[in-house]
């Protein structure tokens, strides 16, 4: 349980800094987006070792779920109830996609799986644009709809506060889910799959079942993040903005920087990555990627197990052992 304590302390510090220091709420929300993204992705990438390059598609579908709910229901007088409906739709849509992808693509491994998921992401994007689905390339702008449902003050409050709190909550929930999974049968099964899938199968582990369970859980959280961090916060969805593989890469970086498959990894990774990115864009506008890119490569080469993974090794056998998980 002490690992969870560490996690809760970090979350509490973030929350306190965001709420008390003026002007820090959005920067903290920016970090939280990355932390939550990392937590959600870790459930699949960290625990199974499968690289889903098209992971961003789940966020994208989630953001569409919320946008569709807002856009089509704002005249019905449902009022604030649209918000939970939107979240539900977002979760539903990303789960459906994960079921479809999971059923077919999870049979592939390694690089083949990575490329297949890229195909899903890009294919979906061009289906939306080409078939003029959900507004096609023009996307959905829900600013006006939100202001009609909630009024100006409340709409701003949702975009600048509620959306961030939601992301915060989703990140926490994803972390706790990771904790539960790690300590349940499923966690051990996934660990076995990550080490050697064929051996795990031979040992009688229902490999497919556990992989798909992790996949769906991860996609569910991604959908919710998309709905709140993108649609509610930015108040618009353009397909060209949400199906960007860069986000998957960012998520991979976060998971890996922190330590894949660890509970604290995504939190540490997300905060480190977010801080680096944020302050570099403030200090050296225009050069941050030039600095981040070699750093990224160096980390992959020198710390393949991530910061938390590395610390975990160092504290093994000391009294700090339980705090790093």
């Amino acid at each position: 349980m002490r690992g969870v304590h560490t996690l809760l302390i970090i979350y509490a510090i973030l929350l306190i800094v965001g709420l008390t220091v003026p002007g820090m709420w959005q920067p903290v929300a920016f970090l939280m987006f990355y932390v939550a993204l990392g937590q959600a992705f870790n459930i699949f990438l960290g625990l199974t070792g499968y690289v889903d390059f098209g992971y961003v598609a789940f966020l994208a579908l989630g953001s569409y779920g919320m946008a569709i709910a807002m856009d089509s229901l704002y005249q019905t007088g449902l009022g604030a109830a649209i918000l939970p409906i939107g979240l539900l739709l977002a979760a539903l849509m990303s789960i459906m996609l994960s079921l479809a992808v999971g059923a077919v693509a999870l049979r592939l491994r390694g690089a083949y799986f990575a490329i297949a998921t890229i195909g899903v992401n890009e294919g979906f994007r061009y289906l939306i644009e080409g078939a003029r689905l959900w507004g096609g390339s023009e996307g959905i702008i829900i600013t006006g709809a939100m202001r009609k449902i909630f009024g100006r003050e409340m709409a701003n409050f949702i975009s600048t506060m509620v959306a961030d709190v939601l992301v915060f909550g989703i990140g926490l929930l994803a972390a706790l889910t990771t904790y539960v999974i790690i300590h349940k049968r499923m966690g051990y099964a996934l660990m076995a799959i990550r080490e050697d899938e064929d051996a795990a199968r031979v040992m009688g582990i229902n490999v497919t079942k556990y992989k798909i369970m992790a996949f769906i859980t991860s996609a569910f959280f991604a959908g919710l993040i998309g709905a709140s961090a993108w649609t509610l916060k930015m108040t618009y969805v353009f397909p060209s903005d949400v199906f960007l593989i860069t986000y998957t890469v960012e998520a991979i970086v976060i998971v890996m920087l922190g330590g894949a498959g660890t509970l604290l990894g995504p939190v540490v990774g997300g905060i480190t990555y977010g801080l680096l990115k944020y302050y570099l864009s403030v200090i050296l506008p225009g050069f941050q990627l030039l600095i981040l890119a070699p750093l990224l490569v160096a980390i992959v080469v020198a710390f393949p197990e991530g910061i938390v993974g590395y610390l975990k090794e160092r504290v093994r056998g000391t009294r700090f052992e339980g705090y790093i998980l």
């Binding site: 990438l45 390059f53 890469v249 991979i252 970086v253 890996m256 890119a293 992959v300």
Partner: peptide, 12 residues
């Protein structure tokens, strides 16, 4: 693992 190589080549 794929994770490392994919990320490293992306970084490059």
């Amino acid at each position: 693992p794929e994770l490392s190589t994919l990320l490293a080549t992306f970084g490059i």
